[in-house]
Design a protein around this nucleic acid. Structure first.
Length: 120
DNA sequence: GGTTTGACCATAA
DNA sequence: CTTATGGCCAAAC
């Protein structure tokens, strides 16, 4: 198909940095989902890229461990060591996990607030 | 520059 | 509850 006009494209190239920006704004003791981050970027369909971006993220300012899946569970595809580390980091922030490795998304789920950017 | 992949999500069975 | 399938689109090969 022909090239998009730009405004049609739901995600911008190099959207990695946007993912990092949103994740950086996740407060301590709070978590968010890949879909929420993707939605904050303008496209809930790109949830996969959010996780992929975090997988490639090596920045220490990005609390990637505060990003989980919509099931309230830590995601690990092929590397369970990461999930173990993630749970440890979250517990250090005061987040408790269930026996099934899940947490209370109902209370801990955080969304990107556009007003926060204006008022800082 | 086409193919594969990937830390997902929603739906169905 | 779990497992399976389709879809979505950018980055890596």
């Amino acid at each position: 198909m022909a090239q998009d006009h730009g405004e049609r494209r739901v995600v911008t190239p190099g959207f990695h940095e946007r993912v990092y920006e949103v994740v950086r704004r996740v407060p301590e003791g709070r978590v968010t989902t890949y879909g929420d981050v993707a939605s904050a970027l303008g496209s809930p369909r790109v949830a996969r890229h959010v996780g992929w971006a975090l997988a490639a993220c090596r920045a220490d300012d990005v609390p990637w461990h505060r990003v989980i899946n919509a099931k309230g569970r830590v995601s690990h595809r092929g590397d369970v060591g990461r999930g173990s580390l993630q749970q440890t980091l979250l517990e250090a922030e005061g987040i408790s996990f269930d026996d099934t490795g899940r947490l209370d998304l109902r209370a801990l789920r955080w969304q990107h607030d556009p007003d926060a950017d204006l008022g800082n």
